[in-house]
Every structure is written in C-alpha cells, then in structure tokens.
C-alpha cells in the first residue's frame, strides 16, 4: 500500500529518479564502510568464522573415572565397546566408540582419569538457545498481553466504576514506572514471596522465566488496554444501537459486533506494541534469564568477539521484529479486503 502525501509527482525526470536511488546506496555503503574502516584503524580483528559455533557445534563427550579401581572387561558391542570398571564407588559400564580409549583389561584407574573422549552429536550453541528463550518468552507474554489488554480494554469502556477504575488504575500504575523496575519488583518482591508461599505449601517454586513473562505481560497489557479502548471507541455508535435494538446484550454486542470491527483498527498499533515486547525482553537478562542479550554477553566473555556478536545479536532481533511486522501486514491486507 503506497501512500503519497499527494499525487503530484516530484522527480518526474527518470534520470533524476535513478540518481536519487543511487544516492541511497552510496549513503548506505558510506555508513557501513566508515564503520568498517574505523574498526580496522583501531586494529580490531574480525573473525566471523568463529561465530557459527555459537549457533551449533559438535560436542565433545569426556568420561571420567569416579573412584579408585580397575578395568574389568573390554568387550565388543556391535560397532562399539563396553568398558566395565569396578571402583570403590561401584561397578559401571561405559559404551564408547572404537579408538577413543587407551586401556587394557586389568589397568588401574584413579578418580579423574579420562576413560574415553569422543565427539558427540550436534548441539545448539548459546546464541541459538538464547534466541529460543527470547522467542518463547515473547510468544507467551504476547498471548497473556492480548488477554489482559482485551479484558482491560472492555473494562475500561464500561460504565461500572469497579471495572472502569480498576482498568484505569492498572494502566496508570504500569505506564508510569520503568519496565526494568517492574521486572525487579516482579522477581525480587513478588517472586521471593510467592516462591516462599509455594514452598510452604509443598509446591515447587516457579522459575525466574515465569516471573519475567509475568512482568512483560502485565507491562504490555497496560498499553494494549489503551489500544483496545481506542479501537472500541473508533466504532460508530450506530453499530451499538443496531445491535442493542435487536435485543443483543451488552456483551453479545461487544464480542460479536464491536471487537471484530475494532480488530482492524487496533492491528497496526498492536503490532508495534509486540515489536516493543520482543525488544523489551532483552531486559530480562537482569534477573538471570538467559535470553538472547544475556546469551550474547556470555558468548563474548568466552570468545572476546565483541563486535561480531553484538552486531549479530542486533540482526537477530531485527529478524524477529521484521518477521512479525510482515505477518501483521499480511493480516491487515486480509482484513482490509472485507
């Protein structure tokens, strides 16, 4: 959907138009080029080849002896070998591939001796895991955010003081304080008390992840309340009159007439809100949830590839938000045809 300020065309000359397009790319290369030049000037060593292992890597499995003892038997088991070891902690059998050990039957072992070391399967790296956590948290928080927002939005436009004022108080309180502070309160205040109560009743305590999801849902929900309210108020009152005059109840009218129509108006601001949610999830690293940002930080402490990993981190967030905004644009086009 191309929307112009007016139909009067500037740059009617095709050459001027092409020059203008070229100008864009020149600008783009200048920005990227100057950043690259600056990093080279400070002697930064770009090592992009080190990056893939943060997504997927081949794990190494190392088996250690658990106590003093000796190798009992080494027996072939299909393509592998069974090594049975008896130590002072008991008898154990390890199944390992050929050529990954250097023992004969009767050898003595001490605790910490390497029994075998071989390559395991492919494993997701720290960034892949972080990406997964970010996606999972954002997805769950989005669903709860929508639920809270719709309930709150419907309450916000009602005439009943208990509903209306609760919704208003919720929105004002949540919008008036920083998300980081709210995350801290959810984890350190609510989390501590709730976990204690859960433990006292013999229920296992909740993960930090769940408190993070709660904080994000409640935060996003407050903004969605206002979006839903604006959507509901954008519906022509005639729609309500038509529905109510045919005998529908308030809630039938709300869920069959108003909300389906409001959805079209609220979709674009809603998408913006959920893009913010994905980005805001980066704050959850503060309560030791290993999402993408925290995973990147941890990756850097081991690799020291600061530039590559932070740029990559940003690109990954960009991919997520861009995909989401594409999906919403598709939805918008579908609802617009009606």
């Amino acid at each position: 959907m191309e929307q112009n300020v007016s139909n009067i065309k500037r740059l009617s000359n095709p050459i001027a138009y092409i020059l203008s397009v070229c100008g864009f790319f020149v600008l783009l290369f200048m920005v990227i080029g100057s950043v690259y030049y600056a990093t080279v000037a400070v002697d930064y060593q770009w090592r992009w080849f080190k990056v893939p292992k943060y997504f997927i890597y081949k794990s190494t499995i190392t088996l250690y002896a658990e106590g003093f003892g000796e190798i009992d038997t080494i027996a072939a088991n299909k393509a592998k070998y069974d090594i049975t070891v008896t130590t002072d902690t008991g008898k154990r059998t390890y199944t390992v591939p050929e050529g990954t050990f250097d023992w004969t039957e009767g050898d003595m072992v001490a605790p910490g001796d390497i029994i075998a070391s071989y390559e395991g399967g492919w494993k997701p790296g720290i960034l892949a895991k972080g990406l997964w956590v970010t996606l999972k948290i954002s997805f769950i928080a989005t669903i709860f955010g929508i639920l809270l927002g719709i309930i709150g939005g419907v309450a916000r436009v009602s005439n009943t003081p208990v509903l209306k004022w609760s919704a208003m108080a919720y929105v004002e309180v949540i919008r008036g304080s920083p998300l980081l502070v709210q995350i801290m309160i959810f984890y350190f205040v609510l989390g501590t008390t709730m976990n204690k109560i859960l433990m006292m009743n013999g229920i296992p305590k909740l993960d930090a992840e769940w408190y993070g999801i709660m904080a994000l849902s409640v935060f996003t929900g407050a903004y969605v309340v206002e979006i839903v309210r604006a959507g509901i108020e954008s519906i022509h009152p005639g729609q309500v009159e038509a529905a109510r005059s045919s005998g529908m109840t308030y809630f039938q009218c709300m869920f069959h007439i108003i909300l389906p129509q409001a959805l079209k108006t609220i979709l674009p601001p809603l998408a913006g809100q959920f893009i913010n949610l994905i980005k805001d999830s980066s704050l959850l690293g503060m309560i030791s949830i290993r999402e993408l940002t925290k995973a990147t930080r941890e990756g850097i402490t081991t690799s020291l590839q600061t530039f590559e990993l932070w740029i990559l981190c940003a690109i990954l967030y960009l991919l997520m938000t861009f995909t989401l905004s594409m999906c919403v644009q598709y939805l918008e086009r579908r609802t617009a045809t009606k």
Partner: peptide, 15 residues
C-alpha cells in the same frame, strides 16, 4: 427490544 425492530437513517449494517 427483541420485539421491536429498528431501522436507522445510516443503515448501520455490520460491515
């Protein structure tokens, strides 16, 4: 209201 049909100036069909 269910026993009283109403028709409006601006139609108010559900779009």
């Amino acid at each position: 209201r269910a026993e009283m049909g109403m028709v409006f100036q601006s139609f108010n069909l559900y779009p």
